[in-house]
Nucleic acid binder design. Structure first.
Lengths: 216, 216
DNA sequence: ACTCATTAGTGGACGCTGTCCACGTTACGA
DNA sequence: TCGTAACGTGGACAGCGTCCACTAATGAGT
């Protein structure tokens, strides 16, 4: 009604600034994933949200899988940021045993919180299509380290603090990550989803005790 | 070529025995899931494999989700059967500490083996749509207990054998299941999928040590 | 400043999917 | 035996991912 004259004939309606459509598609995809998981990232809908015709997306992504890969990377970054924020809130300088323990707990708590509050994004973060590698698209912004690296850092600190013996340290990040991730998945969309509704704190406490037992 | 006369007009080509179409659709869905995970369970393709028109499926399932739910249940049953077979192979009578430990190990090993050898079915087993409950369709065949129940039984045996103290026992099935499931997911389709290719046995050994530490 | 190749967006189409409706046929209980 | 409910069919629709041909804006090189 206001200005319908700009696209009188055919061709381009109006050109967005450099990379705006690409970023917009990813942002739209993130919102779709937030609401409905990776399957909800539908190319046509994302294009609609950006205000562009579906085919325009093919100028920026080879196919839907490539768009989804970018959305997955963004979701993973949001998870990493959440974890980093969680550990940053813990006071106590590096090497203090109690503080290091609290940081490990904070990492796990942030992980589970994210999985619970943003189930769609959490699922999407791990739904990277097998074909499309991460593409390491560094947009200039400085990101938080990946979950595995953050966990490694805390475990190294626990070793330096003497809480964790050097003998037990190697490779310990894998079973610990597995435990927390498994709990997130099983209680999120998995078979424990009703169990978790009633006794979430109990599950978390048991898991925490279990992990701490695995340290020694 | 042989007998094309049976469906000269319109209507039913030929009627299958009672429940054959339903069972066939589930079986076809299982094969699709085996090859490509839950997203590969496409209603029309399953109907095609059974040799029936797509709409026939709607006489047996309300929608695709309900078919998928049945396929998920079948996949979960196959996983449970695999685990039961794994523990059944372990010799030693109930209450023997060493045998109980071996049974716990066998359960976890079977779980990870199934996830690795049948990634599509494994993913599908945990892809139960949120709307459709399990529907507990007991076809008369006797099934193995669900994974959680099998794990509980072994942990109870470990308690009876004195390996696991009664104090640590309550709720321990959850973190242990989480650990094994998390490892399966992360090394299967997750971020550890290349890591696992080279050092699978190492990951499993570290995880086993971690779980055994959590018992005491 | 003007040209011109590259880039970015449009319009239309195709095949595939899940799902609905109306119809005909078969089987089974009354 | 008959009628009714269960079962399978045919045709249709909208939405999806993707391909092709076309056009308008952009920016580099002269």
């Amino acid at each position: 009604m206001t200005s319908d004259e700009s696209r009188e004939t055919t061709g381009t309606r109006q050109r967005r600034p450099r990379g705006a459509v690409r970023d917009g598609l990813i942002a739209a995809g993130v919102e779709l994933a937030r609401a409905g998981g990776p399957d909800a990232v539908v190319l046509r809908e994302a294009a609609r949200m950006v205000g562009v015709v579906p085919n325009a997306a093919y100028r920026h992504f080879a196919d839907r899988g490539e768009l989804l890969a970018a959305v997955c990377a963004a979701a993973m970054r949001e998870l990493a940021a959440r974890m980093a924020a969680g550990t940053a809130r813990v006071r106590g300088k590096y090497g203090d045993a109690a503080a290091a323990r609290r940081r490990l707990h904070a990492i796990g708590r942030a992980y589970l919180e994210f999985a619970r509050e943003q189930p769609g994004l959490f699922e999407t973060a791990f739904a990277l299509p097998h074909q499309h590698a991460y593409a390491a698209q560094d947009g200039g912004a400085t990101h938080s380290p990946m979950p595995l690296d953050q966990l490694r850092a805390v475990l190294d600190e626990l070793t330096d603090a003497g809480v964790l013996s050097k003998q037990r340290r190697p490779g310990l990040e894998y079973p610990i990550w597995s435990t927390v991730h498994g709990l997130a998945v099983l209680t999120g969309q998995g078979p424990l989803r009703e169990v978790a509704a009633g006794s979430r704190v109990h599950l978390e406490k048991v898991t925490r005790t279990f992990i701490e037992a695995g340290l020694s």
